Amino acid sequence: MRRALLAITGLAASTTAMVVLKGGPDTTQVAAQGLPVDGQPVAPGAGSAPPEAPAGAREAPAGDTASPRPTRTTARPPASRPSAGTRAPSAPRTSSKPAQPSTRTVTGPVVENEYGNVQVQITLSGSRIVNVVALELPEETAQSDQRSEQVDDRYSGTAGLVVQQQSADLDTVSGATATSESYRRSLQAAIDRAG
Rank of each mutant, 00 (worst) to 15 (best):
residue 54 P to Y: 11
residue 55 A to Q: 14
residue 55 A to D: 15
residue 56 G to Y: 03
residue 57 A to P: 01
residue 58 R to M: 12
residue 60 A to D: 09
residue 60 A to E: 05
residue 61 P to N: 07
residue 62 A to L: 06
residue 67 S to Q: 15
residue 68 P to W: 07
residue 69 R to P: 09
residue 69 R to Q: 14
residue 70 P to M: 09
residue 70 P to V: 03
residue 75 A to W: 08
residue 77 P to L: 08
residue 81 R to T: 15
residue 83 S to W: 09
residue 83 S to K: 13
residue 85 G to E: 13
residue 85 G to K: 15
residue 86 T to R: 11
residue 87 R to G: 14
residue 87 R to Y: 04
residue 88 A to M: 11
residue 89 P to G: 02
residue 92 P to Q: 07
residue 94 T to G: 11
residue 95 S to H: 05
residue 96 S to P: 12
residue 96 S to F: 15
residue 98 P to I: 08
residue 101 P to C: 06
residue 101 P to R: 06
residue 102 S to P: 13
residue 106 V to I: 00
residue 110 V to T: 13
residue 110 V to I: 15
residue 111 V to R: 07
residue 112 E to F: 10
residue 114 E to A: 14
residue 118 V to E: 02
residue 118 V to I: 07
residue 118 V to P: 06
residue 120 V to A: 04
residue 124 L to I: 03
residue 126 G to N: 00
residue 130 V to I: 15
residue 134 A to I: 13
residue 137 L to A: 12
residue 138 P to T: 00
residue 139 E to F: 11
residue 140 E to A: 12
residue 141 T to S: 07
residue 142 A to K: 11
residue 142 A to N: 02
residue 144 S to C: 01
residue 144 S to E: 01
residue 144 S to K: 00
residue 145 D to T: 15
residue 146 Q to I: 05
residue 148 S to L: 01
residue 151 V to R: 05
residue 156 S to D: 10
residue 157 G to H: 05
residue 157 G to F: 03
residue 160 G to P: 00
residue 161 L to G: 09
residue 163 V to T: 05
residue 163 V to Q: 09
residue 168 A to R: 05
residue 170 L to G: 09
residue 173 V to M: 03
residue 175 G to M: 00
residue 180 S to C: 12
residue 180 S to L: 06
residue 189 A to R: 10
residue 190 A to Q: 00
